[in-house]
Design a binder for these strands. Structure first.
Length: 420
RNA sequence: CCAGUGACUCUGACUGUG
């Protein structure tokens, strides 16, 4: 059973779904019984590979079997759904855990707190933390890092710092992830002094910075135009014997690209490849966007095709980048074709994709299609975003319908979308 | 004893200054 489970794990890791399914079948054909670990590998593997329907089938089969799934099984499944941002199924799995009479452990709570953080329900995240305490598990470092990070990302820096104080008083030892989350918080309030001080503070606390730490700082200084400081931090990182990774390269490529220095951006891209660090969709997207921002749509599409030739599947951001560029060039047909291609290849459109179409339609006075897109979006379960409301308000205002614009503002507030 | 679970970093959309 263990040997089969390992093979299944490897198949899923390589995203070889069909191979995994074959293994699953021949395992039974050979009379080998899957155990709880096997089910855990298979169910979470199927979710990873976007086979939700099969995952549910296997999970139902497990329910009918005499194997009792334990906490660790549910934790894996909740995590798999969370990685796919499928909050609904993740929460359903939590319910299923409770129905099965299993008990949440500290992993479960950590995952659930993170789940509600990612879903933007910070109050619920704090509530789960209370439940965790009530169940006899004190907050651990995962809980703190998830919450500090989430509050900072929602602009509630005060709450992040309050949690940091709690952590210090609780005697939990902060690790590098907690410091990194804090560092992000300082970067958000644009405090270079504090950010660099924190780097020293963490070292004094016996916590060594990692590549994420440096990347946060590099990105932060690059964004505020201090490329020299960003590059010197990159040298510090190498001096600290932290190996370069794709994140650091992507950050720098995007920095140079945004500043119009395409040569430097391209050189870095070549350098990363020569070091055996693989370019990802993010790398290509940064290079594509840079060309678009310079008005070079042809060059952008060349990179787009290179990306496909490199067997890197364009993701929702890649589609968003080129669709928006085509729309802004007035090439509605091409944009729609890309939109269809995206859906056909299994990439789900997100709010950014819809906002590009809606904004473009409105700017061309095509209210009907704008609303059609809005409906499609709602049908896909996506809430109307601030950006979309802004597009409508702008359109109404520019055509002189101030009453309508004001009504739209009231509508967005009523729908719980805070104006920015 | 051998296989499965949680946190932190990179890329795309709207408006205002020009």
């Amino acid at each position: 059973t263990v040997a089969w489970t390992v093979r299944l794990r490897d198949a899923f890791r390589q995203r070889k779904v069909n191979q995994a399914i074959e293994l699953w079948k021949s395992m039974r054909a050979n009379g080998v019984k899957p155990n709880a670990v096997t089910y855990s590998v298979v169910v979470s593997g199927l979710i990873d590979c976007d086979q939700d329907w099969l995952a549910e089938m296997v999970q139902e089969e497990l329910q009918r079997s005499e194997i009792v799934p334990h906490t660790r099984f549910f934790n894996s499944v909740i995590t798999a759904y969370l990685k796919k941002r499928n909050f609904k199924k993740a929460i359903e799995t939590w319910d299923y855990l409770k129905q099965s009479g299993a008990q949440e452990d500290s992993y479960t709570y950590g995952t659930l707190v993170n789940l509600f953080c990612k879903a933007g329900q910070l109050d619920k995240a704090m509530e789960v933390r209370e439940q965790m305490h009530a169940a006899g598990f004190p907050s651990d470092v995962y809980i703190y890092s998830a919450l500090i990070d989430a509050f900072a990302k929602h602009g509630l820096l005060h709450e992040s710092f309050k949690l940091w104080e709690h952590l210090r008083r609780s005697g939990v030892k902060a690790n590098v992830a907690v410091y990194n989350a804090l560092l992000n918080a300082y970067a958000r309030q644009s405090d270079p002094r504090e950010a660099l001080d924190l780097l020293d503070k963490m070292r004094m606390d016996g916590v060594e910075p990692n590549s994420i730490t440096y990347n946060i700082l590099i990105h932060y200084f690059a964004k505020r135009g201090d490329v020299a400081k960003a590059m010197s931090l990159w040298r510090d990182m190498r001096d600290a014997n932290i190996p370069d990774d794709a994140f650091v390269y992507n950050t720098l490529i995007s920095t140079f690209a945004k500043r119009g220095n395409m040569t430097a951006a391209q050189d870095l891209a070549n350098e990363m490849l020569s070091k055996g660090i693989h370019a990802s969709a993010v790398t290509y997207n940064a290079l594509i966007d840079a060309r678009i921002k310079r008005g070079d749509l042809q060059g952008a599409m060349r990179i787009w095709h290179q990306m496909k030739e490199a067997r890197i599947e364009p993701d929702v951001v890649a589609y968003g980048t080129v669709i928006d560029a085509q729309l802004k060039k007035g090439r509605l047909q091409i944009a729609c074709r890309l939109f269809e291609e995206m859906k056909a290849s299994g990439v789900k459109p997100d709010a950014v994709i819809y906002s590009s179409f809606i904004d473009s339609y409105l700017k061309h006075g095509n209210y009907t299609d704008a609303v059609r897109m809005l409906d499609e979006m709602a049908h896909a379960g996506l809430p109307t975003s601030v950006v979309i409301f802004n597009s409508f308000i702008d359109w109404l205002g520019k055509k002189g319908d101030l009453t309508g614009a004001e009504a739209m503002l009231i509508k967005m507030v009523a729908e719980g979308v805070p104006p920015n």
